[in-house]
């Protein structure tokens, strides 16, 4: 019944075939003080679900070709902010967004904006690998097909995409097989490949490794480091080490409690270069979270 193989077994095989996995490397990159070319700029972003004020007053910038990590305890609104950037929150009928979200200077929640066009430029990878119950090939080809991308050869595009996602060698002999036969880690990399097949500008990742074992996680982190060259990546993660390993900048969110009403809302505490956040945070709450004292 369960076609999914043990993740660790599969990854071990893949590892043996592809040679040793290099040890995780701390990203050593020059990160400017502020993002040079912001892809997204939010200004006083507030998000409500019905009466619930989920996120309050978030103002930040996401730099081009950078990896920005959003970290913080549960309920701090990091995923909500992420889903606001490609208008996935539109799928929730009660969600309401106010304030400004600019994407290359264009107001994302402007009256003439089509969320479908937005999502065609801003790809997304989800917490749980969610390949379509179709072949590996059709999973990759889905995006180009629905967006009506002009493609000379779909076969070439599928191959290129899978190579960019470092999945080609593992799946090249079973492109026509159902994606559900892949291991969990491979499925998630397939989902990343599927997201970049349409050549989006940004890839949003919502806790992409939370369901994976450490080896599969490592491979995805390596992949992200490679993809950074061509894409802007924004990742929500519960794993602080992951944020420290992969990201250029880190935004720390937390749950803020209104002292008079007792209402809880998520908000941004500190946003800086990852090295600064992890080595020299300026807010006590950040320091407390990073060092594991709360949250």
């Amino acid at each position: 019944m369960n076609a999914r193989k043990k993740d660790s077994e599969m990854t071990d095989q893949a590892t043996r075939a592809a040679g040793p996995v290099p040890s995780p490397q701390r990203a050593v990159r020059d990160v400017p003080d502020v993002p040079k070319e912001p892809v997204f700029t939010t200004q006083d972003l507030n998000i409500h679900y019905g009466d619930f004020h989920a996120v309050t007053d978030v103002s930040m910038e996401f730099g081009k070709n950078e990896i920005t990590a959003l970290i913080g305890p549960s309920g701090c609104g990091k995923s909500t902010v992420l889903r606001c950037l490609n208008r996935m929150n539109d799928l929730i009928p009660t969600a309401r967004v106010s304030g400004e979200v600019r994407y290359h200077g264009i107001e994302l929640y402007g009256p003439k904006i089509d969320p479908i066009e937005v999502r065609r430029r801003i790809g997304m990878v989800f917490q749980k690998a969610n390949p379509f119950p179709k072949s590996i090939y059709d999973n990759i080809a889905y995006g180009p097909r629905v967006t009506g991308m002009k493609v000379d050869s779909m076969d070439d595009l599928v191959e290129q995409t899978l190579r960019r996602a470092a999945l080609w060698d593992e799946v090249k002999d079973k492109l026509k097989q159902n994606a559900y036969g892949l291991s969990g880690g491979q499925q998630q990399r397939l989902c990343i490949a599927r997201a970049i097949a349409t050549n989006p500008d940004v890839v949003l990742m919502d806790e992409p490794c939370s369901a994976l074992d450490p080896i599969a996680t490592l491979r995805i982190e390596e992949l992200m480091a490679e993809l950074r060259e061509s894409y802007t990546i924004i990742i929500v993660t519960h794993n602080m080490q992951q944020a420290a390993r992969v990201s250029d900048r880190t935004a720390f969110f937390t749950v803020k409690v209104n002292e008079t009403t007792g209402d809880r809302t998520g908000g941004l505490v500190e946003f800086d270069r990852t090295t600064t956040i992890f080595e020299n945070p300026s807010d006590q709450r950040t320091e407390g979270y990073i060092s594991g004292r709360f949250g």
Binding site: M88, I116, R121, G123, F132, V146, T147, A195, T198
Partner: peptide, 24 residues
Amino acid sequence: GLREAAYGLGSTKMQVATKVVVPS
């Protein structure tokens, strides 16, 4: 998740229905 994946790739409602929901 499948529906989200499809919307996340820029599918229209009709595409989600015909290419993902009905086949699945």
